[in-house]
Simulated assay, not measured.
Amino acid sequence: MPRFSTWKLKLRMFLAVAILFGILYALLSVIGIYAGIKSPLIYILLALFIVFIQYLISPKIVEMGMNIHYVSPQEAPELHSIVEELARNAGIPKPKVGIAEISIPNAFAFGRSKRDGRVCVTRGILNLLDKEELKAVLGHEISHIRHNDMIVMTFISVVPLICYWIFQSMYWGSLMDRDRGSSLAIIGILAFIAYMIGQLLVLFVSRIREYYADLGSVEIGGKPHKLASALYKLVYGSAVVSKENKEEVNQVSGFKAFFLNDINQAGHEIKDLKQVDMDMNGTISREELERLRYTPVKIGLTEKILEIFSTHPNTLKRIKRLSELTTSV
Rank of each mutant, 00 (worst) to 15 (best):
P2I: 13
R3N: 13
R3G: 06
S5K: 11
S5P: 06
L11N: 01
R12P: 00
V17A: 13
A18V: 15
A18L: 15
F21A: 00
F21P: 01
I33Q: 04
P40H: 12
L41P: 01
Y43L: 15
Y43F: 15
I44Y: 03
I50R: 01
F52T: 13
Y55M: 14
E63S: 05
H69A: 07
Y70Q: 07
Y70E: 11
A76V: 03
P77V: 08
P77Q: 10
H80L: 01
S81Y: 04
E84Y: 03
E84I: 04
N89K: 12
A90D: 05
A90K: 07
A90V: 03
G91C: 01
K94E: 13
K96I: 00
I99L: 04
A100C: 08
E101P: 00
I104G: 03
S113G: 01
R115V: 07
R115L: 09
G117I: 07
R118P: 01
V119R: 01
R123W: 06
G124L: 04
I125K: 09
L129E: 06
K131V: 13
K135Y: 12
A136L: 09
V137N: 12
H144P: 05
H144G: 04
V152Q: 06
M153P: 00
F155P: 03
I156E: 12
S157R: 12
V158S: 04
V159C: 03
L161P: 02
C163A: 15
I166T: 05
M170K: 09
W172T: 07
S174I: 10
L175Y: 11
M176N: 10
L184E: 09
A185G: 07
A185R: 14
I186L: 14
G188Q: 07
L190S: 09
A194D: 11
A194K: 12
Y195N: 14
I197D: 12
G198Y: 05
G198S: 14
V202G: 08
R207F: 03
R209L: 12
R209Q: 14
R209E: 11
R209V: 11
G216N: 10
G216P: 13
S217I: 11
I220H: 10
I220T: 11
G221W: 05
K226P: 08
L227N: 07
A228E: 09
L234R: 12
V235A: 13
Y236L: 09
S238E: 13
S238V: 12
V240R: 15
V240T: 13
S242T: 08
E244G: 03
N250H: 05
N250I: 03
F255I: 05
F258Q: 07
F259Y: 06
N261K: 02
N261C: 11
I263Q: 02
N264S: 01
A266F: 00
H268D: 14
H268F: 11
K271F: 03
L273C: 02
D279P: 03
S285K: 03
S285A: 05
E287Q: 09
E288V: 06
E288K: 06
L292G: 05
I299T: 06
G300E: 06
L301G: 00
T302W: 14
E303Q: 15
E303G: 06
I305A: 04
L306D: 02
S310M: 04
T315A: 08
K317L: 14
E324Q: 15
T326G: 11
